[in-house]
Nucleic acid binder design. Structure first.
Lengths: 205, 205
DNA sequence: GTCTATATTGAGATAGAC
DNA sequence: GTCTATCTCAATATAGAC
């Protein structure tokens, strides 16, 4: 323990990470555009100008948060692809399940930044770049769904594009209600999502 | 045909409905807060002040749109309850299915206003009132899920609260990608949603 | 129903001291 | 790393003519 158990160093005042966390929470509560630097300053107990010591612009805060969320999601895909490299004959449905479980874990683990990501509209360059990365992720998942259906693991009576969208619609909606420390833990949640997605809600006969 | 086949009357200029439709589309594209009256005026080909002839304030546009979406959703619940009054011994799962199908239809039918509703954060009184009505709707659906599970129609190994949230997360996500006139029609979409929700994605064995 | 001003507020951001 | 001013611009909304 070379420093302290705290994540901050230096002593008084904030570091960039601490400002980021407070800001992202506020962005998620009010929406990015509706959150003024004034409100941020209030929440931090700082003046507005102090924030500019940590970030050159409001949008830089957004950019850092979005990058964190996107990197985490992209890592889930990368991990699933390594799984394929290790076992070339494993069914695509295994990789798909790994991606879904991984995505739920990222949602829970990086809840604030992923929540922010899912609400981006594309009004600025920063937002459009984030949307492009998100679409690439979505496309990769969609082709996993196609693979799984083609090998016979998933039902073929519904268009795979719709399946992928409904699937991720369900998963992404978790950010609307899941709160860490609540009654549901991440592993149970991932199990429930997989169960509902694969087997549905009807009573197993 | 007493007037014209057009929905507008009066002749030149806009009526409130036409302004509303253009505004809601812009709100959904940029987000409500990020949409200025100036952009609205540009899209309408009007001056900013002309808009104030139709709505006293920007937020009044939002309020009218949210009310439209909420009324349509509440009518779905009311219709399902009348179904119960007519056939008191019908299973709750029938009413639940009616509500889900009805909700998908409302989403498709009133796509712009429902999209707007689903993105409201609660920053103002207007938004908070809308959120309260939406939560009442969600609670009603959640208790339908409980009823359906208690009568044995739905699996009981997952908490009904989570089931209801995942279910509506999937349905609500439709607004993120569904576009009228596209390859998928509303009835097919409702069928697909019900099929995925009830029976899951796995290949039926 | 629409226009051209204009009033007024609040936003993001900067300067420069401590 | 934070502060007190202050700049600048864009936003909502109003006044009053056509």
């Amino acid at each position: 323990m070379s420093e302290t158990t705290d994540t901050r160093r230096g002593r008084p005042g904030y570091d960039q990470r601490a400002v980021l966390d407070v800001a992202v929470d506020a962005f998620n509560e009010y929406g990015y555009d509706a959150t003024s630097m004034g409100v941020l300053a209030e929440r931090l107990g700082l003046s507005k100008s102090a924030i500019y010591h940590h970030f050159a612009a409001k949008e830089d805060i957004l950019e850092l948060a979005l990058d964190e969320a996107l990197t985490a999601l992209e890592n889930v895909l990368a991990a699933a692809n390594e799984l394929e490299a290790g076992q070339p004959d494993a069914p695509a449905s295994d990789r798909l399940a790994a991606v879904l479980r991984g995505a739920v874990n990222v949602l829970v683990d990086k809840l604030p930044s992923v929540t922010l990501l899912l609400r981006v509209r594309g009004n600025t360059d920063v937002e459009r770049r984030a949307l492009a990365r998100r679409r690439a992720f979505d496309r990769a998942v969609a082709s996993l769904v196609v693979e799984a259906r083609d090998e016979g693991s998933l039902r073929s009576d519904i268009e795979p594009g719709i399946v992928a969208r409904l699937l991720f619609g369900m998963i992404n909606s978790i950010v609307e209600w899941y709160r860490p420390g609540g009654p549901v833990d991440a592993a149970t949640l991932a199990d429930d999502v997989l169960a509902v997605a694969l087997d549905g809600l009807r009573t197993p006969k």
